[in-house]
Design a protein around this nucleic acid. Structure first.
Length: 561
RNA sequence: CGGGGCGUGGCGCAGCUUGGUAGCGCGCUUGCUUUGGGAGCAAGAGGCCGGCGGUUCGAAUCCGCCCGCCCCGACCA
């Protein structure tokens, strides 16, 4: 491709609205443009990257026997009513009516449609297993689109679905997906972790996420050298046990001392010896939730214990405890109480349910009773639940996820098959997603520098950026043109920068675009009878004789693949 | 949905406090010069100052409502 004919509007300055590095660079490099909140146009270079990523995904999905198909983006509402999600999912689903007044939705995901298809077409155990996938548009009316293409309202997803006769067969397809995903992300050149994840509303018992470390990520994972890796939504840890003071309840006056920090400072007590109490309201009434003063409640964990909840307001707190929020505690309270398991042993300071007072020497089991559960958020340096070594916490971008669905969808959609005994059985399903745009953004986040993007070879829009320094010089031009056609003939994807612009601008654009190999043909190199080759990733430089330039460059390229 | 910020030529911004000719840098057009790290000079084009309403002789500027975008939080099947 000749740069003089390629539409890639580059910018010298960061766009005002961009915060994330990938957002700034993808706009500046002319890969994407924003149409509205969470809606992006992919310009030619951006689309090339996406196409590369999707080609790798197709290759690896096909390699595990998955078959590509394509489902509609618009669905009749009834199919979503069958599984109940039409009502469960709120504003996040785009809804509309057709001209006949029928309710329709825009696809957030395709479990319903694929299961409908399986229910209709699969009859026998002989038809199984099947793995079907598509790379196609999803629409979600996100509450807050953000960070460029990281969280958008319309995006491409590779979604695959497995259909099996039993759990063992599902396990095999699950494992095959893990292998395929691992190869996909490796080939795309990004760093990633596979972590345990919360199956959430997708149902099923087991789920994993593939996470690319990046400060722009919205998730956090807990990691250990031993291989333990989990989303903090469910990550476990062993928290250290401090030295406790003597038990024996003593009420102490703590006027205007409400927060953990204030109580800690006022009573000269380490926050780990404080008991933090939160009053929540659930569908089944109020619940007092307790963690240590140095800990935070992990809502996703708590949610599994008590279901949906909201914080009590000031009046409710007063009514239920007799005190204001800064002075509440479990002692004497006759409501459901949940304590983090780390509170099982210890002697704590807690609110007295009396304004201006706390209680010292409180012991669970003696002074109050509570259900124990793991509801605290994991902190860095706490001990790994497997090997006791310190955990680290990293910010990550979710680039893929895999779920064992079981019969969550086959049951309501009546997707069954006849087994060897002629008995009707429910199909066992799995679902598996990858966000290609997030792979692209993660690559930019992980590999860019102050000059611009540095693409991994396999997903770069072009592998070679051939810079002709002076297009008005006939000798340089002849050398560059010959090299361009030789590299093309050798099968390389070359961006030939033949534009008549100043050399500085040309080099800046090359660094911003981030093609892995830059070949420079200019006065300096021509005088020496060579072309210059510079690797974007390492900065490594080579000089090759003009005569053998194409072969030499191709050798460098082959090494980078 | 709660909190905060922003909205002025294509892009990045100033002007608004204290109402009175709409400005700067980059980009764009034309010409000449320049040509290995975002060139120089000269001449140009390009703006219902987010929208609607109000105050005023007069509104980018003051007031009200609305819309859009970004950030933090909630949410994320």
């Amino acid at each position: 491709m000749r740069a003089s004919r390629l539409f890639f509007p580059t910018l010298k300055e960061d766009p005002a609205e961009a915060e994330a590095i990938s957002h700034k660079l993808m706009v500046r490099a002319g890969l994407v443009r924003q149409l509205a909140a969470g809606l992006y146009i992919y310009l030619p270079l951006g689309l090339r990257v996406m196409d590369k990523i999707c080609a790798i995904i197709r290759d690896e999905m096909n390699a595990i026997g998955a078959q590509e198909l394509s489902m509609p983006v618009m669905h009749p509402a009834e199919i979503w009513q069958t599984t109940g999600r039409y009502d469960e999912i709120g504003d996040e689903m785009f809804r509309l009516k057709d001209r006949g007044g029928r309710d329709m939705v825009l696809a957030m995901t395709h479990e319903e449609v694929i299961t409908w298809l399986a229910a209709k077409e699969i009859r026998s155990y002989k038809d199984l297993p099947q793995v079907w996938y598509q790379i196609q548009t999803k629409l979600r009316d996100e509450a807050r689109p953000k960070s460029g293409i990281l969280r958008t309202r319309e995006f491409i997803m590779k979604d695959s679905y497995s259909f099996d006769t039993d759990e063992q067969a599902l396990e095999q397809n699950y494992e095959l997906h893990i292998q395929a995903y691992t190869r996909i992300f490796h080939r795309c050149g990004i760093r990633f972790y596979m972590v345990e994840s919360d199956p959430g509303m997708m149902g099923g018992a087991t789920a994993h996420e593939f996470m690319a470390p990046s400060a722009a990520g919205e998730d956090e994972v807990a990691l250990c050298d031993c291989g333990y890796a989990a989303n903090v939504e469910l990550a476990r840890s062993i928290s250290g046990v401090p030295e406790f003071p003597d038990a024996g309840v003593v009420e102490v006056a703590t006027p205007d001392v409400r927060t953990i920090d204030e109580v800690s400072a006022f009573l000269k007590v380490d926050p780990v010896l404080l008991l933090k109490s939160l009053l929540l309201i659930t569908d089944d009434g109020p619940v007092l939730v307790m963690v240590r003063g140095d800990q935070e409640v992990q809502e996703s964990k708590l949610n599994r214990v008590i279901g949906a909840s909201r914080p009590a307001n000031a009046e409710e707190i007063r009514e239920l405890t007799g005190a204001e929020a800064g002075f509440i505690g479990p002692v004497g309270l006759e409501i459901r109480k949940i304590a983090d398991e780390s509170l099982e042993r210890g002697v704590f300071v807690t609110g007295a349910n009396r304004d201006g007072f706390h209680i010292r020497g409180v012991v669970l089991g003696t002074d109050f009773e509570a259900e124990l559960a793991d509801i605290r958020r994991v902190k860095a340096n706490e001990a790994c639940p497997h090997c006791q070594k310190p955990l680290s916490i990293e910010e990550v971008i979710e680039i893929g996820n895999i779920f064992k669905l079981g019969t969550k969808y086959s049951e309501p959609m009546n997707a069954t098959f006849l087994d060897e005994n002629g008995k009707e059985q429910k199909i066992i399903m799995g679902s598996y997603g990858i966000g290609p745009a997030r792979i692209a953004a993660a690559a930019v986040e992980q590999l860019s520098d102050e000059k611009g993007i540095s693409w991994p070879m396999n997903i770069a829009p072009f592998s070679i950026h051939l810079a002709l320094v002076q297009p008005k010089d006939s000798q340089q031009t002849a050398i560059a043109e010959k090299l361009y056609s030789e590299l093309m003939a050798a099968g390389a994807e070359v961006l030939f920068d033949d534009r008549v612009i100043s050399p500085g601008a040309k080099f800046k654009d090359a660094e911003l675009l981030g093609c892995p190999i830059r070949v420079t043909v200019g006065k300096r190199s021509v005088a020496d009878g060579v072309v210059e080759v510079q690797l974007r990733g390492t900065g490594e430089e080579h000089k090759f004789d003009i005569g053998a330039a194409a072969e030499s460059v191709m050798a460098v390229l082959d090494e980078l693949v």
